[in-house]
Simulated scan of single mutants.
Amino acid sequence: MKTYIFDPISDDALAYARKHLDVVTWKDDKINSPSDAEACIVRTYKIGKDQIDAMPKLRIIAKHGVGTDNIDIPYAKSKGILVTNTPTANSNSVAEQAVALIFDCARKITQAHIDNEKGLERNQPMYLKGYEITGKRLGLIGIGHIGYLVGKKLKSGFNMDVYAYDPFISTEKCESMGFHHVKSIDDIIKICDVISISVPLNDATRNLISKRELGMMKPTTILINTSRGGIVNETDLYEALQNKKIWGAGFDAFVSEPLPPHDKLFNCFNFVGTPHNGANTYEALTRMGTGAVDEIIRVSENKPTLTNLGAKIH
């Protein structure tokens, strides 16, 4: 099956694709004229109407990852094209990134490294003091695959008391995970020491955390976002950090990505930002790449795909 891969993928996944499919990659000149493509794999490459129309033989768009905001799914569906993703392949890597950001914020690790490199007069300066997260309250906004893993790791490893908000999860399901179920985001914002966001960006979640919510947080709150930019209002976040209304923020997702080098958030002593790097591990990249290839193989064999966000298989 003629497959165009528009973004770099792991070497192992690429070898797997070449073993099972007729592959054209981002390295090939022919990638600019994919009129014979029957399938394509994308990570961040945008597939809109023009790109879809340029591939009249296209049967499937396989997303290498979870979020599909770079794909025009309604138009693909109207053309009878399948859209698949790999919803759990990067969950553990992103959850580990969230945990890493929590520790970085709690212990000021990045700032301590920067200041140490610049030169310090003494060890353990008081302005770099942190706090322990063991036994503190963790708030989860969203308890899908990633949110659940964040909560599980911090509850079992650091005895955190976990509170969770997710309108699509029942109280019984939440409690079976070992978490306290809350009915309102406010209930998390008011009491939790660490808040981790793991939700998709849509009309309901855009600016979910803004000036009002930030103003309700404790001055010791650490806010983590490893999902999508736009869920937290970045202007309001900057003001909260500058005025020390919260302890710190660790973000892996922004409205503009990568975050511009002179963005005002970088002026905040209590801010850590990474370039949407949560899924950028050897293991996750291999799982996402081979998972996307497997969906294309299923289509080539006229078998049902594991995921389907677009049209019905034909």
Rank of each mutant, 00 (worst) to 15 (best):
I5T: 03
P304K: 06
D115W: 00
Y127T: 11
H113Q: 10
A95Y: 11
S196C: 14
G147N: 11
D203C: 05
G291P: 09
F6M: 00
D115N: 13
Y127V: 09
T274C: 12
G278Q: 03
N116P: 04
T68M: 14
T84C: 12
Q97W: 00
K152L: 10
R59I: 01
L309I: 04
A249K: 00
D166E: 04
N123H: 12
S184D: 12
L101W: 03
T226A: 06
L154C: 12
P275Q: 05
A292E: 03
T86K: 00
P34R: 00
G278D: 09
L265R: 08
I141L: 14
T44C: 06
A76N: 05
L14E: 14
K245I: 07
V42R: 01
N159E: 08
I222M: 04
D186H: 12
Y127Q: 11
M55I: 02
H20K: 15
H262R: 14
E295M: 04
T86V: 14
N270Q: 08
R228I: 03
L241V: 03
G119T: 07
I5D: 01
L223F: 09
T86L: 06
L241H: 01
A164S: 12
D22H: 03
D263V: 03
E117D: 13
D22Q: 07
G135E: 07
